[in-house]
Design a protein around this nucleic acid. Structure first.
Lengths: 160, 160
DNA sequence: TGGCGAATTGAAAACGCTTTTCAATTTCAC
DNA sequence: GTGAAATTGAAAAGCGTTTTCAATTCGCCA
């Protein structure tokens, strides 16, 4: 989905809630939708500042909370102690993450087999499983070969 | 492993590091080893206080950090925003958790199939996977049937 | 187009959990 | 026992996040 389309979704969500459309909100949302996923608040704040230096930290937090409530952003808590956010594709199935502990690269994957297995384990233990958190931590190929130091987060979900 | 045996391990670890043995440290470690797993700092602090009201919060934090470094405690971060700690059995394989979102019950499980699958996914994506974090969230049988409100954390790892 | 009440904003304060500081106390090798 | 070094509790600081509050902005209605 394009940034444009997401912005329309956002504006619509605001209207539905009786909220106002402001320059700050729009700028934050636009930068967020335009960036590739897994941004920390700090990173988003810095990126938004480049576009509009008048936005404050609090507004970034508030807007992310809003985007989350609208279902346009997903909040993730990896092991680095700060929340990260990714834009949600509406056709996007649930997915998980594998993270390189050397360079910080985050790769998304979705495994049907993993879904099934998790479901089965839950049922065996008497649970009805709703959501899960699955994170694998390791070293990526590039880092093992000493090729790159800080690659960008790879984009898109690998379907397995 | 008994509380006694764990205490011996702890004392030994202290000696190896040239650290001193104190009443506070011993009390905290003993209570920790004696409790069933997944205690928050707050819970451990309260339990230790019942035994020895002279211990401070900071010392509980410091001792948990120490136990972690000695490999006698594992730190977990579930979705409730505070760290939880469990005693480590030395024969204990890596295990994962399933958590009831209604009553907070935490059940441990270890699935070979899950291990294998995770390993396979990692390799496919070019990673060498070291550790992982797998948490399933759902509703447990008791809660679904409205039987109990706040059961204790079930003890022991379910091997699947 | 202007006016007005309500929503929104930025800065700073508050928050919750955790770590650090520091002076006072305790441990332990001699 | 003695003294240097480690440890302690209380309080302060840290860190990411949320809330407060006065000032600004939005957008409905005249």
């Amino acid at each position: 989905m394009s940034v444009r389309a997401r912005m329309r979704r956002f504006e619509q969500a605001l209207r539905e809630r009786g909220l106002k459309s402001t320059a700050q909100r729009d700028d934050i949302a636009r930068v967020f939708f335009g960036a590739e996923g897994h941004l920390s608040v700090e990173e988003l704040y810095a990126a938004v500042r480049r576009v509009n230096p008048r936005v404050g930290y609090a507004t970034v937090y508030r807007t992310l909370k809003l985007l989350k409530e609208c279902g346009l952003a997903a909040e993730r808590h990896f092991d680095d102690g700060q929340a990260r956010y990714e834009p949600v594709e509406d056709d996007q199935q649930q997915h998980d993450h594998i993270i390189c502990e050397r360079c910080g690269k985050i790769v998304e994957f979705a495994s049907q087999e993993l879904e099934r297995l998790q479901e089965r384990i839950g049922r065996f233990l008497g649970f009805v499983v709703g959501r899960h958190r699955i994170e694998l931590y390791g070293i990526c190929a590039e880092c093992r070969e000493g090729r790159r130091r800080r690659p960008r987060s790879e984009h898109g979900v690998h379907r397995l």
